[in-house]
Write a protein that binds this DNA or RNA. Structure first.
Length: 162
DNA sequence: GCCAACGTTGGC
DNA sequence: GCCAACGTTGGC
């Protein structure tokens, strides 16, 4: 592999898919379908690799927070839900011979004992340049190794404190 | 190719 | 539920 392990943040509304759903899934593994944004698609298709680390983020939640981690167990492949007329994410324009949308598979690693909420993330100076904190609506975001390690540390700290 | 209208995301 | 930010669509 040309590059070492990379890190990402995946956003999901817990109403539609939460980290608890991932943990309950068979083999604690699920496919990350339904991405219908080109920038996020490009990341899933071209950049996210087997073995990469994923921060699981609950958006539109109370409170919104990073709730745990997962690992990429299958790199980008066509999102078949785009061809399922009954699926909420159906897209008539995606051609099976030249798929528009992609997804990856992730496996649950850890659910944080105490989620790291958005307000507490904002207070951490070393995380100030996280894409998440830049007013970004992007659902698949890059995370630096430094940010990843810092968040790992934070999750241990808040777990013992609460 | 510009840009106004419209739709969606997501924090609050 | 409101609304700011921003992505997408479509008329020209």
């Amino acid at each position: 592999m040309a590059e070492g392990k990379q890190y990402w943040l995946f956003k999901s509304e817990p109403e539609s898919f939460s980290i608890a759903d991932l943990e309950k899934a068979p083999k604690k593994t699920a496919f990350w379908d339904g991405v219908r944004n080109y920038q996020a698609r490009n990341t899933l298709r071209d950049k996210v690799k087997l073995g990469d680390g994923v921060l699981f983020y609950h958006s539109n939640a109370d409170p919104s927070a990073i709730v745990g981690t997962a690992e990429v167990v299958k790199a980008g492949y066509p999102d078949h839900t785009a061809w399922d007329k009954k699926d909420h994410h159906f897209d008539a324009k995606s051609d099976p011979k030249n798929p528009t949308w992609y997804m990856v598979d992730i496996k649950h690693i850890e659910t944080f004992a105490a989620p790291i909420t958005l307000p507490s993330l904002k207070k951490e100076k070393p995380l100030a340049d996280m894409v998440l904190l830049q007013n970004s609506r992007l659902s698949i975001q890059p995370v630096s190794e430094k940010q990843w390690n810092y968040i790992q540390k934070l999750s241990k700290k808040s777990a013992t404190r609460s």
